[in-house]
């Protein structure tokens, strides 16, 4: 028995490997790869070494022949935080995508070092998602070690569908933020099982905050991503009005 080696782990893969594995074979074309050297100009002056793709991989790929935007956030670099450059990369791909897009989100939200610019970028991303989903599926995958928190959790919530694995976590505030704001009695961030009970994939899918549960397995996620695209095309699309209702339902009274 070799349960681990038979499976290609999403968690173990790099953002580029993830896109390549999920797209139709050989179809991913990266835009602004690391050699384009589009990195953050703000980090060096704050003593932080920049990564050459600013922690965001974007491009075009085919998904069962559909021409889609492919986006992956690199959770390894500064917690997958979104700054000006990375945020702009994501927004532009969404704006130009033809038949939809998928976002592989592994992100703690706005990059602290670029606070306001990151905020602005996430607003653009949200705009672009809402506009694109009116005409094509936008599917978020949350299955990495970081999860999806902060402003980017709002972006994920705007997508047509959210795919999660048990490893993935999804929430507005990260565990540490909740502990800091509400006190350790309310939430102990070091209590890992409690974190996953509150925001993990199993929980989020059961609650209906995410749509489909997958294994930490690239093949399973690739299959599911295609299903999500097909299902979204066939089902009644959520109008913005229904979206507002959905927010109202989930908001505390």
């Amino acid at each position: 028995m070799t349960p681990a080696t038979l499976r290609r782990s999403y968690v173990e893969s790099t953002p580029r490997e993830r896109i390549v594995a999920l797209a139709d074979p050989g179809t991913f074309r990266e835009i602004l790869d690391p050699f384009a050297r589009c990195s953050s100009p703000y980090l060096a002056e704050q003593g932080v070494v920049a990564q050459r793709d600013d922690g965001v991989v974007i491009g075009r790929a085919l998904l069962e022949g559909r021409d889609v935007g492919a986006i992956a956030v690199d959770g390894r670099f500064l917690g997958g935080s979104i700054g000006e450059i990375g945020g702009a990369k994501i927004a532009r791909v969404l704006e130009r995508a033809r038949d939809g897009a998928f976002l592989l989100l592994d992100t703690g939200g706005i990059r602290l070092q670029e606070a306001n610019l990151g905020l602005l970028a996430i607003a653009e991303i949200c705009d672009a998602i809402v506009a694109l989903r009116e005409r094509a599926p936008v599917v978020a995958v949350i299955a990495g070690r970081v999860g999806c928190y902060g402003g980017m959790s709002i972006a994920a919530a705007l997508c047509s569908q959210i795919v999660m694995s048990p490893v993935g976590r999804f929430g507005l505030n990260g565990p540490e933020v909740i502990e800091q704001e509400a006190g350790i009695e309310e939430f102990d961030a070091r209590d890992r099982p409690a974190t996953w009970r509150a925001t993990g994939g199993l929980r989020r899918v059961a609650q209906g905050h995410a749509d489909i549960l997958v294994e930490d397995d690239l093949d399973d996620i690739a299959r599911t991503l295609r299903e999500a695209f097909r299902a979204t095309r066939n089902r009644e699309r959520l109008s913005l009005a229904r979206l507002r209702d959905r927010f109202a339902e989930s908001a505390p009274a």
């Binding site: 790099t14 790869d33 690391p34 050699f35 070494v49 920049a50 990564q51 050459r52 690199d74 390894r76 670099f77 500064l78």
Partner: peptide, 18 residues
């Protein structure tokens, strides 16, 4: 050829070779 690997993450590094 060009080669790129790694990440700017704790204990790690990004390498661009061309």
């Amino acid at each position: 050829k060009r080669a790129h690997l790694g990440a700017v993450a704790s204990g790690n590094l990004e390498v661009l070779c061309e």
